[in-house]
C-alpha cells in the first residue's frame, strides 16, 4: 500500500475519531450509570441502583483506558496539533483531570466502604454528571472563535467561552445525551436481568431524556450557524446523513413502544433501541467529524500541519493492527462474562 502524507493523516484522524466515538458512548453509559445509581440509592426495592452498579463495576477501568488512548493517539499522530491543544486546554484539561480523579477514586471507594456508601456515591454521582459537560467543551474550543494568538502562542479566551451560547448548547447536550444513553443501556441490561421494575424506570427515563437530547442537538446546530458558520455549512453538505441519523433516533424511540417478545409483562425492544441509537450517534458524529476536517483547531491547525514523522506513523499503524489482534479475544471474553452471562447480570446482591 502506497500512502502519501494526506492519506496517512486521514487514516490517523480516523483512528483518533474512532477512539473518541467509542469513549463518548462508553463514557456516557459509565457516567450516566454513576448518576442513576445515586438517584435511586434510596429505593432499594427498585433494584435500579443495583443494576447500575453491576454494569459500572467491571467497566469503568476499561472505559478509562480509552481516554488515555485518545490522548496518546493525539500526541503520537499530531504532535504539532497537540502542542496547540495542550497549551490552550491547560486549565479546562486540568479541571477535567481533577474531576475524573475524584470520581474514579470515590466510585471505587464506595464499593469497599459500605457504611459510607451514601456519601461516597454522592461524590462520584455528582462529579460524574459534571464531567461530560466540561469534557465536551473541547469541541467548541476547536471551532475557532474562542482561541486567540498572543506573542506567537495560542491562548484560550475564557470570557468569550463563558458568554458563548454555542458552548452552553454543547454542555446541555452532553448532560442529556449522557443520561439518555445510559438509561437506554441500563433498560436493556435490566431487561436481560429480568428486573421488571428497574426496566420500567430506565425506559421511562430514556423516553424523557431522549427528546431533550435531540432538542439540544438542534440547538447546537442553531448556535453553530452563528458562531461557527464554516462548520455549519460543511455539516449541511452531509444533510442526507443527518436525516438518516434522525430516522435512527425515531426507530429507537418507536422500539421502546413495540411489544416485548420475551416478556409479555412489559413494553419495548430495548436491544433494538440501543443498537439504533449507537448507529445514530455514529452517523451524527461522522458528519460532524467529516465537516471538521481538515481542521483540528480552526483556522490555524490542520491535520497536515504538525503531523508525525512518516516512519513513526508506519510503526504506530502496525502496532495498532497487532494490538487489535492481541486484544480482540480479551474484549470478547470480557463481554461474554459481563454483558451476556446471565449468572452475572442476574446475581442477587
Amino acid at each position: 500500500m502506497q500512502l502519501d502524507g494526506t492519506t496517512d493523516a486521514l487514516l490517523a484522524i480516523s483512528i483518533v475519531w474512532g477512539f473518541i466515538f467509542i469513549y463518548a458512548v462508553m463514557a456516557s453509559m459509565d457516567f450516566g450509570a454513576g448518576f442513576w445509581s445515586m438517584i435511586y440509592m434510596n429505593k432499594k426495592q427498585l433494584k435500579a441502583t443495583n443494576i447500575a452498579n453491576r454494569y459500572l463495576s467491571p467497566t469503568w477501568e476499561v472505559t478509562n483506558v480509552f481516554i488515555v488512548g485518545i490522548v496518546v493517539a493525539l500526541f503520537s499522530f499530531f504532535p504539532g496539533g497537540t502542542f496547540v491543544l495542550g497549551t490552550v486546554l491547560l486549565i479546562p484539561g486540568s479541571i477535567i483531570l481533577l474531576l475524573l480523579a475524584i470520581r474514579s477514586g470515590f466510585l471505587v471507594f464506595s464499593h469497599a466502604a459500605k457504611g459510607y456508601e451514601r456519601a461516597l456515591t454522592y461524590v462520584s454521582g455528582i462529579s460524574g454528571f459534571i464531567i461530560p459537560a466540561v469534557l465536551i467543551l473541547v469541541l467548541p474550543v476547536t471551532h475557532g472563535n474562542v482561541v486567540y494568538r498572543q506573542n506567537g502562542s495560542h491562548q484560550l479566551d475564557f470570557t468569550n467561552l463563558f458568554l458563548s451560547p454555542h458552548a452552553y448548547s454543547f454542555m446541555g447536550f452532553a448532560i442529556f445525551s449522557t443520561l439518555f444513553l445510559s438509561s437506554l443501556l441500563l433498560a436493556d441490561f435490566s431487561n436481560v436481568a429480568d428486573e421488571r421494575d428497574a426496566y420500567q424506570v430506565y425506559r421511562r427515563n430514556a423516553l424523557i431524556t431522549g427528546p431533550l437530547a435531540l432538542l439540544l442537538s438542534f440547538s447546537i446546530m442553531m448556535t453553530m450557524r452563528t458562531e461557527a458558520n464554516w462548520l455549519y455549512m460543511k455539516m449541511m453538505n452531509g444533510l442526507p446523513w443527518l436525516i438518516l441519523s434522525f430516522l435512527l433516533f425515531l426507530i429507537a424511540f418507536v422500539a421502546l413502544f413495540l411489544p416485548n417478545t420475551d416478556n409479555k409483562d412489559r413494553l419495548g425492544k430495548p436491544r433494538l433501541a440501543v443498537i439504533a441509537i449507537t448507529l445514530q450517534y455514529f452517523t451524527a458524529s461522522y458528519v460532524y467529524g467529516r465537516a471538521h476536517l481538515p481542521y483540528m483547531i480552526y483556522p490555524d491547525v490542520t491535520i497536515q500541519s504538525g503531523f508525525t514523522a512518516p516512519e513513526t506513523f508506519r510503526a504506530l499503524f502496525i502496532s495498532y493492527i497487532i494490538g487489535f489482534i492481541i486484544l480482540f479475544p480479551g474484549f470478547y471474553y470480557f463481554w461474554k462474562l459481563f454483558m451476556k452471562d446471565k449468572r452475572y447480570i442476574k446475581q442477587p446482591e
Binding site: 483506558v65 496518546v72 470480557f334
Partner: peptide, 30 residues
C-alpha cells in the same frame, strides 16, 4: 507541550504499546 512534540514524532511507540498493556491489565483485573 514542546517535549511531547518531540516524543510524538520520535518516541510515541512505547506510549502506544502501553495502551494495549493497560487494556490487558484492566480487562483481566475486572
Amino acid at each position: 507541550p514542546g517535549f511531547m512534540e518531540v516524543i510524538g514524532k520520535v518516541m510515541s511507540l512505547p506510549f502506544q504499546i502501553e495502551i494495549y498493556a493497560f487494556f490487558i491489565e484492566a480487562l483481566f483485573m475486572s
